[in-house]
Write a protein that binds this DNA or RNA. Structure first.
Lengths: 339, 339
DNA sequence: CTGAAAGCGCTAACAC
DNA sequence: GTGTTAGCGCTTTCAG
């Protein structure tokens, strides 16, 4: 079976005895084509197994129907929820996601953004507000709507749908302090890769200092992405070094759950001996025993709002007045940090 | 700032004083262009902020560099691992994933496959071996390599990289029976949506019958995707209806973890009073307390092997002899099912 | 309601 | 090492 070329509108047209233009019209709706002709064309399409070639249409129309998206990791429920919200919000408008992941690396982000822009997306959504200089130039020069999400960049490229990771981390510190904890540690990934994680750590430090507390219990759990296993290992290291720690704030619920399990293995009771808080409102934080105090950044809402921003920018839906939408994360106090 | 048209090779050519063809050559490597000319073109590219338009090249070359992939859900660590393995395996060959999700629905799969094929991918990878008749026809007629993964379809469309979900579930049953459990329940999503889940249930039933045991403790935990919360709720229902249950086999580790937490809340000891087993070797199964017995289907390996199959089929790498690669899942016995 | 001509931005093929 | 011509499969535009 030699890979014969797929049929084109020409082939349909020849078979039905009309011009390719009529085929083109018949395949879209809202166009005026004789009902019988249209039916004949439908039939021919079926018989020949014709599949519309959007690459050709894209070139001709200078519209691809792509919205490019970069996320740090494909294996992260928070970002997955954002992508789902975004995808669902765009699909009714014929827009399709072109997704890539950066592995928490700005150089990979730069390469990815360039690769994505070659596909001529109609808009581009990037997770985070930190980019290489060239990446920034690429985004600015693309002449398409740019949305930075999951962050509040100081100098946004275009649209922003995000929240302050630092403020959200501060909410957790305030809560832990309010329940009487003073010796509080922060567990996160190594600095320099995950800028949202770095912001959360900065927010932890700032809040601790605001309360006049020692902010030096900072544990690096490894190169992002860090997850449950790293959280457990870091917790063990922490409790060996500083057994008097009263509370642990983790950069994500996944680490926090790892911390919880390590406490269980070490026979340390949570929250009596140590309080644990996470970040992200992952499903596990709600269901584990005890459930984890966390912050909900509304990942899916970020996606939906980003979709709204894109649609507005493309003139496909009424546009919002502001180019900047700040989501208010919600503190969720659960048993893992009870007083 | 009117959205001016992005510069084309024409613009570069004019600026440098060469023909567009020379620009085209200069932008690729392995082509013979005068070194100075090439440098001048590089410079002009930078100055004008030119970004290569692959939509045009795709049409001309009749090659898009896309590999289409469908997965049931974007928010699933197993499929995410497969996608990562696939993406990593393809990217060195200039192939980019075009990803879509089906929401565990064959009709959505059909619509998605059609939409993806319009983009003229060079290969298509679909998760699962069950399709609507039309979807199957689309796949067969696309004249590109088709790979079905995570399953072993009876009548494959093309390539297969998967495993028997039924056999893997049987391994878990055998283990539970070997540790002395007889009254074993199965918790999964409602039938008819998730075919891998359905296969696992079928494997459970077959194995139970093989052991001469009652296979009627089948709990439906809701419409897929089902996860931890559904697992917990289903476990509560199960233990109210059938408190003498000795073991629970769950369709995934996520449900199994939900089951574990429900036991913890109900004061039921695992594995002493009840054994729990999951499926998928998610991170949580390894780290929770007690860790969960499960089966590792090697999701990332599925992705890497799928990449190899695609590359072979496209002649970009040495091809395997067989079109069918069966992965052997590994039983991981952990404390949640100790005798 | 239908068709002819032109062209989207790039590159294969063929000159020179 | 470089240029010219043609055309990928559609759709815009204009004419009928």
């Amino acid at each position: 079976m030699p890979p014969r070329k797929p049929p084109t509108m020409q082939d349909i047209a020849r078979k039905v005895g009309v011009s390719p233009m009529t085929v083109s019209r018949a395949l879209r709706d809202g166009t005026s084509v004789n009902a019988q002709t249209r039916e004949a064309i439908r039939l021919a399409v079926d018989e020949l197994g014709y599949v519309f070639d959007s690459t050709a249409a894209n070139l001709r129309q200078q519209r691809t129907g792509f919205v490019a998206v970069t996320i740090p990791s494909i294996n992260n429920a928070n970002f997955a929820d954002t992508v789902r919200g975004l995808s669902d919000g765009l699909k009714d408008f014929g827009l399709q996601l072109l997704l890539g992941y950066t592995d928490y690396d700005v150089d990979q982000e730069e390469a990815l953004v360039e690769q994505l822009l070659r596909r001529r997306p109609e808009a581009i959504v990037v997770t985070g507000g930190q980019h290489t200089a060239r990446c920034r130039r690429l985004l600015e020069g693309a002449n398409i709507p740019v949305v930075e999400i999951w962050d509040l960049p100081g100098q946004p490229v275009g649209y922003v749908v995000g929240f302050s990771n630092a403020v959200a981390a501060g909410m957790l510190v305030d809560h832990l302090v309010a329940t009487g904890r003073k010796r509080i540690a922060f567990i996160g990934g190594e600095a320099g890769r995950d800028s949202r994680g770095a912001d959360r750590r900065a927010g932890f430090v700032a809040a601790m200092q605001r309360h006049g507390l020692d902010a030096s219990r900072l544990i690096a759990a490894g190169v992002p992405p860090v997850s449950m296993l790293e959280g457990a290992a870091a917790t063990r290291a922490l409790l060996e070094q500083a057994p008097d720690t009263e509370a642990v704030l983790c950069v994500s619920d996944l680490l926090a759950f790892g911390a919880l399990t390590e406490c269980q293995r070490m026979g340390i009771s949570v929250p009596q001996q140590i309080a644990i808080a996470g970040f992200g409102n992952y499903e596990i934080a709600e269901i584990c025993v005890p459930p984890l105090t966390t912050v909900n950044p509304f990942p899916e809402r970020i996606g939906r709002q980003t979709a709204a921003a894109v649609l507005g920018a493309l003139g496909l839906a009424p546009a919002e007045a502001s180019h900047r939408l700040e989501i208010s994360p919600e503190l969720l106090v659960r048993a893992s940090s009870e007083a």
